[in-house]
Amino acid sequence: MLRASGLVKTVGEGRAARRLLDGAAVDVAAGELVAVLGRSGTGKSTLLHVLGGLDRAEAGRIEIDGERVDGASERALAGLRRRRVGFVFQFFHLLPELSGEANVRLAGRVRGAHPRAGVRAGELVERLGLSDVAGLGPAQLSGGEQQRFAIARALVNDPRLILADEPTGNLDDASGAEVLRLLRETADDGRAVLLVTHDDAATAVSDRVLRLQDGLLA
């Protein structure tokens, strides 16, 4: 599902420049949940951004479901993110003006979204146990509820790949466990899931664990 190799990415300029990815490679198959661990500042989030087409690598090859990411135009990348990739962020990134359910539906409102995105949004809200709080705004939701809405939003266009950036980093243990369970279920549904995390509990639900160190995954 996801195949990446030879990824190079530098951040900063001049004396402050740091090469975060230096030939990193990763493959994630459908139905597989892979966890990437690493210390703070090693480039875990950057890896996820590059893989999902949110940022561009200086070198390397990335393929999602047979579609090339590296070198793709902005328009092609937007299409790729719309159809094939779902993102889950550490800080949820729910829009404060929208209710939880409206945040889920947001991803279905972009042009070219999944034709059943609206229906799927309702189903996901129900399936993730969020029906009772669907009309509340983010400020009225607990961290766990917010992250569950964020996961629902990531799934609304039925992507084949889920990229999760520290999805439990801002949650208490119980909520974190619930989120990991949902991600495991997502992988069990046949999707590829790549999550970067500090959370050792994530390793328990993962099929494989990789460590990012000196720009390489091992």
Partner: peptide, 16 residues
């Protein structure tokens, strides 16, 4: 900016 970035991360193109 953040909201629009989330929209773009969800696949929103320039038209969105």
């Amino acid at each position: 900016r953040g909201t629009l970035a989330v929209l773009r991360a969800c696949g929103g193109a320039r038209a969105d």
